[in-house]
Simulated scan of single mutants.
Amino acid sequence: MTFQQISQRASGYLKTAETLLRAAQTMSDRAIAGHLKAHADDYQRRAEKGPHVDAAKAFVRSAANAEGEWCT
């Protein structure tokens, strides 16, 4: 996964969080608004955490591939 793909994923999560927050602000039902805000918080966490996790996985795959090439 390239850095650009990782950035696009994080950007998508942030856009989704913003959309959920806007929808929550227009809700008259507090329970539904609370659920939307909770989902928005989850997407914000994913946006913050995602690039780090994806980069770590890519590094592990890269290291494993390099090790395999060294052993042959």
Rank of each mutant, 00 (worst) to 15 (best):
64 A>F: 03
53 V>D: 04
54 D>E: 09
54 D>P: 04
49 K>I: 05
37 K>V: 15
20 L>F: 04
19 T>M: 06
35 H>V: 03
40 A>Q: 08
16 T>I: 11
37 K>Q: 15
36 L>Q: 06
17 A>Q: 04
36 L>P: 00
15 K>R: 12
17 A>N: 02
29 D>E: 02
19 T>H: 13
66 A>N: 04
11 S>N: 14
53 V>S: 02
59 F>Q: 08
55 A>S: 14
13 Y>P: 02
18 E>T: 06
35 H>P: 03
32 I>M: 05
61 R>E: 13
69 E>S: 08
5 Q>A: 14
7 S>R: 12
8 Q>K: 14
70 W>H: 11
11 S>L: 13
71 C>H: 10
31 A>Y: 07
34 G>E: 02
39 H>T: 05
41 D>G: 09
16 T>R: 09
60 V>Q: 06
47 A>R: 00
20 L>W: 02
42 D>W: 13
53 V>K: 09
42 D>T: 14
1 M>D: 07
17 A>E: 02
59 F>G: 04
59 F>N: 07
67 E>I: 11
15 K>H: 13
11 S>Q: 15
66 A>R: 04
2 T>A: 06
37 K>F: 08
52 H>Q: 05
17 A>V: 09
45 R>E: 10
17 A>M: 05
60 V>C: 09
38 A>V: 08
69 E>P: 00
5 Q>G: 13
69 E>M: 06
7 S>Q: 15
49 K>M: 10
49 K>E: 10
12 G>A: 07
58 A>W: 06
14 L>A: 10
48 E>R: 11
21 L>V: 06
36 L>V: 06
30 R>E: 14
27 M>N: 01
14 L>T: 15
13 Y>T: 03
24 A>W: 03
68 G>C: 00
63 A>T: 08
30 R>D: 12
19 T>Q: 12
17 A>Y: 03
19 T>W: 05
25 Q>D: 13
23 A>Q: 09
18 E>Y: 04
13 Y>C: 06
53 V>I: 13
58 A>R: 11
11 S>A: 15
21 L>Q: 15
43 Y>G: 01
46 R>P: 03
24 A>P: 00
26 T>P: 02
66 A>D: 12
